[in-house]
Design a protein around this nucleic acid. Sequence first.
DNA 1: ACTATATCCTGTATGC
DNA 2: TGCATACAGGATATAG
Length: 289
Amino acid sequence: MPELPEVEVVRRGLVAAVSGRRIRHVSVLHPRPVRRHVGGPDDFASGLVGRTFGEPKRRGKFLWLPFADGDALIAHLGMSGQFRLDAAAQPRPPQCRIVLAFADDGPELRFADQRMFGGLWVSPGGADLPVEVAHIARDLFDPGFDLDATVADIRRRRSGIKRVLLNQEVVSGIGNIYADEALWRARLHYDTPAERLSRARVVELLDAAREVMTDALAAGGTSFDTLYVNVNGSSGYFERSLAAYGREDLPCLRCGRPIVREPFMNRSSYRCPSCQRRPRAGVRYSSHL
DNA sequence: ACTATATCCTGTATGC
DNA sequence: TGCATACAGGATATAG
């Protein structure tokens, strides 16, 4: 379940692993992860040969690796995508979908993806900002992130605040885990109407999201299993720092009441039933707590 | 124009 | 032991 911190860990790994390296050969072992490549698997593979990677970029949960000619390789990890750097002699796991070998005969770059919600494809002219990524809002760590505009956008949405947080066209990089953590830190129920939040309350929430993702990044990301790993194959340590997500029946770290899990958008939401009360009709949510 | 929902996918865990 | 079901949840096409 890679979200912004996990994707950023992977990006940093790729900076060290592939920047400046020239592709010698590409193998597509499963067509699904290249489904978004316009020319199909064969064109994907042949079109990459001979190109040299620049410095990998990220917006929200999207990655792209620019080439000198102005094109870019886009990568999205989806639910279970992983990049691994391995010697060619290393056995490939069954989830390995795409392999890039390099002209320097160093370790090859492998894209593994169990559930195959993720993928790789070439974006013509996408080196600066791929058109496939342009509709994604800037994330909380983007130097160009506009706090006032984002707060205003959030407050005019007619939806519950968690739905808005998960909308990558409003603010990107936040997924189910960090949405629940930010809402817990801000003491908000996921169904609180976004339009009933004061400006200051929304700023508090975004601050909480930025802080929890900063902490997670410092810990190398969150992982519950082997589905999320960095390019070296190791997992992050942030799971132990989560206050809400995955903590059903465990005591709230503020008040001790057991955390509850509730169905939400075909997934789960975790919250403290005391600190994060269900909103009542007409109540407005301002700061000064 | 905006919001909500169905869909894709596979490995693991759980219930009967 | 086996079979069925639930669950994990990114982004997006489509329905409302």
